[in-house]
Amino acid sequence: MDVRKLAIQQLKTVLDPELGINVVDLGLIYDLKIEDGHINVLMTLTTPGCPLHDSIARGVKRALEQIDGIRDVRVQVTWNPPWTPERMSEEALRQLGHFS
């Protein structure tokens, strides 16, 4: 499996503990750059001042560090552009009670 697919698989193990939905389906990951064993993640959270800010950002870093051959992971949290619900996947919406 290529590293990008592995990275997304790992990111899907990081859940927002309040919602129980992973960061990929929530649409929190804006960009993922993988190069020579280095990963740069640009991500956001559902709201500025989220009490889970540090837990989720550090969780993303740790999850990606588990991948064989990855030497360095950098995570940047941005509020620009702010997260919007449109970024969520159908799976996330389903878990939030939509379509039922």
């Binding site: 193990t13 859940l15 309040e18 989720i56 870093k61």
Partner: peptide, 9 residues
């Protein structure tokens, strides 16, 4: 978080 499964709130 990111290393093992953790419970939700």
């Amino acid at each position: 978080v990111g290393q093992q499964n953790v419970p939700t709130l």
